[in-house]
Write a protein that binds this DNA or RNA. Structure first.
Lengths: 196, 196
DNA sequence: CGCATATTTGACTGATCGGTCAACTCAGAA
DNA sequence: TTCTGAGTTGACCGATCAGTCAAATATGCG
């Protein structure tokens, strides 16, 4: 019927997978939700795993959009990080209302699942993590130039820790069904970034 | 044949689940690995989900042992935390050699999966997280009494952040297939605990 | 229009899933 | 010795799984 079939499949899969996991969602579930038949799914994707990679790519595009908006340089670098945390928490809150429960990080959860699934999936997973880290690296680097964080700080190293911290908070937010848990990241990031 | 059948089932399930996820492991896989028949599994467990809860319980017992050893008061409180991180990393390293890849946290991964699976599972998951957090809370509280961390620090609040940080680092360790990633927690914990 | 290609259909496969069941074994109590 | 009940067996169930395929249809181009 339409040219957007592939996108509809990925979008449906994204929602279902985010509410559970790739392994818990069947290709038939995805087809039903997308209003599409099995053959169409396998016309666009060679395997379920490939669909999973496409979902990760889709989630990364959405995250990329959020990152670009939050990290734009209309405010000082550390404020950008705060802004990102706020929006990340907002998104968890919205999703909590949409589904019945707080989901985890749409990237972290899928990455954890795909990492043990072959080379392409693993490569894609680390690529996404590296790209995400880069946003933090840039912001911290700029803050360092402004003297807002100690000069002994190595931006790239700290950035990895910030990403890890956010991922862990997202897991706890899911476990306690409380998106607000991640907001503490705003203070925590400063503590992790200030000294080396 | 033996009275330890239930334990063999749980142990087999634990290994398989830790190397992948509960959803990716079938009851037949578990039975094969445990040298047991389907009926025996369902004699001890009413459902696959109940088996998952038992695996979480088993992993928690193992973690409890590690925690008791690491947090014994023969060294100052902050050193206990360091010791725990070292042993946690050691365990990931051993498991990396056993399987082909670095696994995530045996508790964190399963908790993330069980949280969306009904009341009993969710309750168990939060109970484990709370009990784990308590170890950090006690150590920080004692360090506070000794003046090793700022008096403005609320131990319980900081403890949650430490656990979150460790969980996030475990995810990244899995993604990058490098258990050493979690070792940075030793420095990070100090930064997170020192001020409030 | 006619033709080639891209997309969609929907029935189909063989394997595997979680779970059930009646029959069987065997240790221990009376 | 007999009885009992926990533990074990292995075949079996209906449902669902990921994936296939030939035929039908839509689309875009000359």
């Amino acid at each position: 019927m339409a040219r957007d079939t592939r996108e509809r499949i990925v979008a449906a899969a994204r929602d279902l997978v985010h509410a559970a996991s790739l392994a818990e969602v069947s290709t038939e579930d995805v087809c039903r939700a997308a209003g599409v038949h099995k053959g169409s799914l396998y016309h666009f994707f060679p395997s379920k795993e490939a669909l999973g990679v496409a979902v990760l790519e889709c989630n990364w595009t959405l995250m990329r959009t959020m990152l670009d908006a939050a990290f734009s340089d209309d405010v000082p670098p550390l404020a950008r990080i705060d802004r990102f945390v706020d929006r990340f928490a907002d998104r968890l809150t919205v999703m909590r209302e949409t589904m019945g429960a707080t989901p985890g990080c749409p990237l972290g959860g899928l990455i954890g699942e795909l990492v043990g699934h072959g080379d392409q999936a693993r490569t894609q997973a680390t690529r996404v993590l590296n790209a995400w880290t880069q946003n933090f690296t840039d912001a911290i680097s700029e803050a360092k130039g402004r003297g807002e964080v100690g000069s002994a700080v190595e931006a790239a190293t700290v950035a990895v820790r910030l990403l890890a911290h956010l991922q862990g908070l997202a897991l706890l937010a899911m476990a306690y069904d409380d998106p607000q848990v991640v907001l503490t990241a705003k203070q925590d990031f400063r503590l992790l970034a200030i000294s080396s």
